[in-house]
């Protein structure tokens, strides 16, 4: 008589695990697909360069998947923009340090270095919006957004364009809700002024 071996239900458990993982990856892929273009434009407006923007978005995707991929899908949007915002801040910080070294090397005036407006991309330079849309309004908006300080621009883009609420924007920008409102108020005022001046 053959001895009976104990049976362990391994195969169904593994199958289920792989299936759940595959669904999660597909959902994550869909989420990234839904935000990647807007993320690219945000990074492009912040850096003024398509190549830099692509690198920044890729870094943000890596960081988001690694640190927040297992979080509930409802939290993904603010968390993704939080990572992107962090990458943009790092990029600006590196650029400022490089600018300081360059200024010391070229004996430039230090006052210009500390002026955020002076550091903004040249408004007359054709921006990404101009390349894409080619319209006067698009060019003006692009220039006005490019002139905004980083925090104000992010507050405007996340609240107005991405449609995040104040709390989610505060999560993305790692600041208080009050700060978000202040940044947005200033951004709206500056943009309105810039657009009216153009009109």
């Amino acid at each position: 008589m053959a001895a009976t071996m104990p049976t362990i239900p391994i195969a169904p458990a593994l199958r289920n695990s792989v299936r759940v993982e595959s669904v999660a990856n597909r959902t994550l892929d869909e989420f990234l697909k839904s935000v990647e273009r807007r993320a690219l434009r945000m990074a492009e407006l912040a850096s003024g360069s398509r190549d830099e923007a692509l690198d920044l978005v890729q870094d943000a995707m890596f960081g988001f998947v690694r640190h927040y991929g297992s979080k509930p899908a409802a939290d993904w949007a603010p968390l993704f923009y939080r990572v992107l915002d962090s990458r943009l801040n790092d990029w600006h910080r590196r650029r400022q340090v490089r600018g300081r070294w360059l200024a010391a090397w070229l004996h430039r005036d230090d006052e210009d270095e500390s002026d955020a407006i002076a550091q903004a991309p040249d408004a007359n330079e054709p921006g990404p919006l101009l390349r894409l849309a080619g319209s006067d309004a698009a060019r003006t908006l692009d220039a006005a957004l490019g002139k905004l300080p980083q925090r104000q621009r992010q507050a405007f883009l996340l609240r107005v364009w991405e449609g995040l609420d104040v709390a989610a924007t505060a999560t993305a920008m790692r600041c208080s809700e009050g700060s978000v409102k202040t940044h947005l108020f200033r951004a709206l005022a500056a943009l309105r002024r810039a657009l009216e001046d153009h009109a």
């Binding site: 807007r38 690219l40 434009r41 849309a133 309004a137 908006l141 364009w161 943009l191």
Partner: peptide
Amino acid sequence: HPQWTQAAKRLLDESTE
């Protein structure tokens, strides 16, 4: 948000398309 932000939003959307 102010009315003009809708136009800004539309322009930004167009730029991604």
